[in-house]
Amino acid sequence: MHAINAWRGGGAPCAKDLAALRLALARIEARRDGGSQMASREHFSLGAPEVDAVLGGGLNRACLHEVLAPRGADWSAAAGFGLALALRAASGRPVLWARQDFLESETGRLNGVGLVEFGVDPAALSLVRGRDAEAVLRAGVDAARCKSLGVALIEIFGAPRALDLTATLRLARSAESSGVTLFLLRICVGEMTRAPPSAAVSRWRARAQNSQALLANAPGAPRFSVTLLRHRGGAADRSWRLEWQRDRGFFCETAETRHAALSGSFPALPADGALALPSGQRRAG
């Protein structure tokens, strides 16, 4: 209730009560069980209450979601965000990552220890290396039909002809009948605002984001600047800065602060409704 009052106190119009209520509930949930129990059969939450509220509780399972990296340099952000989403969606079930060979020279090959450090259980992850986009898509369709798989990550470079609307429709339909959640990582789709058409339920754009410095100015936990470009039946074009909390297995939203905290402890989830940035501060990056 505290949170709702704070919202009202902030001068929110009454028409937004429903959204406010949702937000409040999401936040209470998040505080109660660390956001990890919010996974239902249909939804998986990101763990950041504000984002989950906008998404109406979370993203749908058994659907196709897209994460775009506008430039090759954004690969690490898109892959990190996509992988973290995949971990949320999988909640312990097996994950399959299908990659194009070309990406190995662009971004390096996946590193088992690095995956563990990111929060992945390598025993539950299978990697498929496809010679080209067609091979990766074929592997993706096969994976999308496998009921016992939790998540399939399909990583494609650029906009190959094989990845058209029909291909994404096929993926989406397979996912719907099998229950596998699919993430399509698209690298280098250009800075275009209108990304290629697809049957994805949600489309995200991820960019790198400065982390919160630790002691002695060391880089902190991974942060991403993400934009929800499209969300079927929901709000779109919203941006957040999210931090991936590996140890807890969820995202949390970050309020940009100049005064770096001393350690990567639980970042402030403001209970007093201080959602907006402190005035007079500019977001960097």
């Binding site: 690490s76 892959a79 990190g80 992988l83 971004t107 390096g108 090959r109 996946l110 590193n111 220890v113 690095g114 995956l115 563990v116 450090e117 990111f118 259980d121 390598p122 025993a123 982390s211 630790l214 060391a218 880089p219 902190g220 936990a221 991974p222 590996r246 140890d247 350690s263 990567g264 402890s265």
Partner: peptide, 22 residues
């Protein structure tokens, strides 16, 4: 072969990168 990996220390950012160039 199935094996258990030791989990990274709590509260630390990832110490190893997601990918390695070879």
């Amino acid at each position: 072969v199935a094996e258990t990996w030791s989990s990274p220390p709590d509260g630390e950012p990832p110490a190893r990168p997601l990918t390695l160039f070879d």
